[in-house]
Design a protein around this nucleic acid. Structure first.
Lengths: 246, 246
DNA sequence: CCAATGTCCTGGTATATACCAAGGGAAAAC
DNA sequence: GTTTTCCCTTGGTATATACCAGGACATTGG
């Protein structure tokens, strides 16, 4: 390895071979879901390469979504991806409940805040109007899947915070306040995680994730809730059925 | 820099500061779209850090989507993100044409092939049935945006390849074959690029992108085309309007 | 029995160095 | 004037090394 210039080598970078090897081990099931990958030092020794090169390969595999790192404990094989049909429901929770995904919600923070210009426009309220804001972490089978920040128009949901927020808020709003969701505007993009999100999701800070934003409208056509979810990219798949118009 | 243990430093990693600095330069407009970022070596010198640390910061900024690298020419500031409304149209081209995005299509390959099990199921044909397959690269203002692989049921579109494929194929199918799109099933996920895609999009191989798959149905409710697009993650945003059912 | 301590493992950060390959442009050759 | 050649800059790969911080776990001390 690492001769001055073998040139006989297929020009395939060393770290690529390691990536391919790890990918195979995972895809083939030799390494089952949530099992530990070899450590950086172990891979370096196994392949006769430096730790930094092994690390490069592991980071690539991690970024690919095949593995996730868990702080300084090690890297583990990612679980299966799950699908979220955005054209049928506006609540992931309702969707997840129907299956057997062990869904758990952790409340990270809640506060009463005021609408800034962007939120005011989205929720059709005046700038400065009171909004409930709460941040929650959603776990599937004990593993972080996405972080959601939600803003609800305060005057529509008096004493919202007196209720348990570790449940579907759209269901809560429907049951307790008679505000069923009728439709939603959704947008999806890929972006980098900020520090807080990365910490909650157990990812390196500048990893990419998928952001899903949605404005939820009631039967009267007026928006009452705005949510912003940031997903671990390897976990989510969003599906929809579109009817062609105009 | 790099004393044994200052501990006075705010514990903020060096590369983070560089990232923040670059982000500011880009966000503030000091570095306009498509302008060159400082090179790895230049940043190393400027901040008094090693090239590898500077590189780390640049890769993070790149991954964030704020910059793109162009082979060994350097890194440049990314252009604005654009939005693709998946609930209204099934053709990105038609969407893009309406705006002033300089859209160009490059034909990468075309062939007549046979449906494998997965494609047969998606297109409601028998396994082994003839399909047209073509791969195209879509550029916006001269910059690669996504690669699309499309499969069309062959017997519905005789001599498809005699037409110009550097245009919207849904429009082509509608105009030349009387097969307007009626609806589509779409799914979106984040995944890593393979070598070919990365090469076409000008990205490192293991980079993440957004994959959009769609089956297009005609007025008779039968599928006639399947497409798989892989987007540069920082360029795309997908929006939809959902009506809550069930 | 339980708490505190210490050791070993892990990944995270940072540096210094080396060479390669490809793009770009200036200089030299035609 | 045009083509060719060469050099410089750029990113890409790879290594060796160093220290930090946090989790896991066994050992020790009360």
């Amino acid at each position: 390895m690492s001769e001055n210039n073998p040139a006989a080598e297929n020009k395939v970078p060393v770290f690529q071979k390691v990536i391919d090897h790890l990918r195979d081990e995972i895809r083939s099931g030799k390494l089952p879901e949530h099992s530990a990958l070899p450590s950086e030092r172990a891979i370096g020794k196994q392949f006769g390469i430096s730790r930094m090169t092994a690390r490069r390969a592991l980071l690539a595999v991690e970024q690919e979504g095949l593995a996730y790192s868990s702080g300084r404990r090690g890297r583990f094989v990612s679980p299966q991806r799950l699908t979220y049909d955005i054209s049928k429901t506006v609540s992931f929770f309702a969707h997840a409940e129907s299956g057997e995904l062990g869904l758990k919600i952790e409340l990270i923070s809640k506060q009463l805040t005021q609408a800034d210009a962007a939120l005011a426009a989205k929720l059709a309220v005046a700038e400065g109007d009171a909004l409930y804001k709460y941040t929650r972490l959603f776990l599937l089978k004990g593993h972080p899947a996405f972080v959601e920040e939600e803003f609800a128009v305060a005057h529509l949901f008096p004493d919202l915070f007196s209720h348990d927020l570790q449940q579907s808020t759209t269901l809560l709003m429907e049951r307790e306040y008679g505000m069923p969701p009728h439709s939603g505007d959704i947008s999806i993009r890929m972006r980098a995680l900020n520090e807080e999100e990365a910490g909650l999701l157990g990812l390196p800070t500048y990893n990419a994730g998928i952001e899903l934003e949605q404005v939820i409208y009631g039967s009267d056509g007026k928006p009452f809730c705005f949510g912003r979810q940031i997903w671990r990219g390897e976990l989510a798949e969003f599906s929809a059925h579109a009817i062609v118009t105009g």
